[in-house]
Every structure is written in structure tokens, then in C-alpha cells.
């Protein structure tokens, strides 16, 4: 379970949004369309940022003397609701790389844009509540 939680954090909605925005501007600048590579870079960079974030917390907690096992630190037992923001992050990826490039009509693009904003805002909200719960649990 801990490993699943660790990997799921690669789909953090906020980090994915930042990555996708960077990829979109890069794609528009170079006019190329290697979708698989862009998806991989977005998810992988999000995962790396999460590892740094986790490392900083680990360091901080080590300095205050809390002895934490890997399972306790990452979180061994989580309900399905915990993974909701990551599912939203995955949906954001599908919208950005799967749906958006196929749309031409302005209305459809605006609809997808609004849907993406809803996913991002609710994903960030869920992530932050999960973070507060994690801090309270540690």
C-alpha cells in the first residue's frame, strides 16, 4: 500500500497542471507532437518534485527526533477517498493530452478549459485536506 501511495503522488493535480502548462508552451513553440514523451516528462517531473517534498519533510521530522518507518511516513492504510485527487490528476492528463488536441470548436475548448479548472481546484482542495490529515496523523 505504501508503494502504491508513493507512486500515486506522481498524479498530484497541481504539479501536473504546472507540468502540462510548461509542455503546452513547449509544444506550441516547437510544433511537434510527441504525446507519450510529454506525458512521461510531466508525470515523472511531478514524481520527482514529490520525492523532494517528501525528503524535506523526512529531514524536518528527523531533526525534531521523530523516529518514523517508511510505512508510517508515507501512510500504510488509506481509504479510496485518499486517491480521489490522483484520479482527478489522471483525468486532467487525459483531457490535456487525449481530448484537447482533437477539439477545434471554440466552445468545446472553453468547456474543456472550464472542466480542467474544476478538476484542478477540487484536486488541490482534496490534496490539501489529505496533507492536513497526514500532518495530523504524523
Amino acid at each position: 500500500m505504501s508503494w502504491l501511495i508513493l507512486v500515486a503522488h506522481a498524479f498530484n493535480p497541481l504539479l501536473l497542471h504546472i507540468g502540462m502548462t510548461r509542455m503546452r508552451s513547449r509544444r506550441e513553440a516547437s510544433r511537434r507532437a510527441v504525446v507519450a514523451q510529454d506525458v512521461f516528462l510531466t508525470v515523472f517531473s511531478s514524481f520527482l518534485v514529490y520525492l523532494v517534498w517528501l525528503g524535506v519533510h523526512w529531514l524536518w521530522l528527523s531533526m525534531v527526533g521523530a523516529g518514523l518507518s517508511f510505512d508510517r511516513f508515507v501512510g500504510a492504510d488509506r481509504g479510496p477517498a485518499y486517491f480521489l485527487p490522483f484520479m482527478l490528476g489522471f483525468l486532467m492528463l487525459v483531457l490535456e493530452f487525449g481530448v484537447r488536441p482533437r477539439l477545434r470548436a471554440e466552445q468545446s475548448l472553453a468547456f474543456v478549459g472550464s472542466l480542467g479548472t474544476v478538476l484542478l481546484v477540487s484536486g488541490c482542495y482534496f490534496m490539501f485536506v489529505n496533507y492536513l490529515a497526514w500532518i495530523a496523523y504524523l
Partner: peptide, 13 residues
């Protein structure tokens, strides 16, 4: 704020 930024996209269709 949510309404200002997102409503048009959902209502236009």
C-alpha cells in the same frame, strides 16, 4: 471567483 472564471465555458454549449 469560480463563477467568473468557469461559468461561461459550461453554459455556452
Amino acid at each position: 471567483l469560480f463563477y467568473l472564471f468557469c461559468a461561461q465555458g459550461f453554459l455556452a454549449p
